[in-house]
Design a protein around this nucleic acid. Sequence first.
DNA 1: CGACCAGCACTGGTATACAAGCATTGGTCG
DNA 2: CGACCAATGCTTGTATACCAGTGCTGGTCG
Lengths: 237, 237
Amino acid sequence: MARSNRQRTSRRAVYETLRRKVLTLELPPGAALSENELGASLGVSRTPVRESLILLSQEGLVQIFPQVGSFVSRVDPAKVADAQFLREAVELAALDDLPAELDPELVEELRHNLAEQRRPGLGLEDFFELDEAFHHTLLRLSGHGSAWATVVSAKGHLDRARRLGLYETASPEGFAAQHVEIFDAVLAGDAALVRSAMRTHLRAVFDDVERVRARSPELFATDTGSVPVRRNVVVWE
Amino acid sequence: MARSNRQRTSRRAVYETLRRKVLTLELPPGAALSENELGASLGVSRTPVRESLILLSQEGLVQIFPQVGSFVSRVDPAKVADAQFLREAVELAALDDLPAELDPELVEELRHNLAEQRRPGLGLEDFFELDEAFHHTLLRLSGHGSAWATVVSAKGHLDRARRLGLYETASPEGFAAQHVEIFDAVLAGDAALVRSAMRTHLRAVFDDVERVRARSPELFATDTGSVPVRRNVVVWE
DNA sequence: CGACCAGCACTGGTATACAAGCATTGGTCG
DNA sequence: CGACCAATGCTTGTATACCAGTGCTGGTCG
């Protein structure tokens, strides 16, 4: 008898909330995160908050300085590059490994996803969700869907940077078109074309990040080892 | 002014101890992990133990069932395959990305490492350490050394399985020879040869795991969702 | 004898109390 | 006026107390 593994513990809720807020920049890079404050504002004690921060810290989204404070990590260009490299490696390897017969259900899912992406008046957050699902489904298509989890946890830095990029450029249409290009190449079974289309797509995302960096350097880390000052520079509000 | 980021908190010590014990199979798959017992045996309270277990659980090395118990994860073949896939993707992509001029310092490090691997009377644990360092240095050679951290945290399952394999076959010599082969191909700058040698090597590791599985099925998971019984079946002892 | 059921012991989840350490800040002293 | 320094309030780290829920177990009742 399989038991529901879903834990609706308060730690899980806090973790997901905080992670979302960090990724959506609602908690901007550099913001101070006090366990006490967060607990009070979320209506729980320090314990679940603290445990969530530890998890986020392992993902690199939060930095914890003992006896000093916890802070939302600044976007580290080196880590963004790492995430980019890892993601590209995994996604390209997966596409190299596509089966001869594609799962029609997943293909239909992709088709529907792409249609949604082109829906007029689509919100930015909605586009991100569809984008995530698109890439995840591509991985599932090659039978390596569960590797997505690792990619996700590694690409936190990349995601924040991408979001910054889209907030500025505000044109998901170009990316959506690239998605279609990839999808068509997959359907055509043209491995080389799939590879180059995906690589172009992912590199475009990366270039976007670099543009943002030139404009908003304060969100990016310079020295990862340095300890930020306490309360003065806090962006929190 | 850069501050020492090294935290020598008790949580860190507990985490590293537990992780090592899980990876070396000193805590075998399926073993029950009581926060109270562990705390008592390590001389700390539940808190650092608990936080360590949460971290290990995020890595997939431990499973936590609320109000039931925490257990060392059984080796999940699907996760082993995932780790294998991810590792292969990353390492091959890195080797595709080698610079024209190799860092002579790293090359020397690799040469020294390989010499150590062939030292007679080498212990199994020592070989593992060298093996890790070898692959990590290869990544550094391509400038993607920091991506290794993600690979490490994802390949926990793979490592345990590999260890099982080496305990049985007990012949690191074959793997050491493959390492030399890869290294020589890198020096020669033969990208295609590098790729095939590395792929052969990693696949050999994976096949080893499958052999072990046939012999010791009790260490492997069948249904990841099922909750193990409490104290009876415990392998601990 | 067997099925059932209530109590019990143990689990992890959460809240709280205390400890150790850092940074700011305001005052004092040279 | 400036450098120094100690008090103070904040931080995270750790220990402990309590809670809700689970599986086992032994006794009871049919």
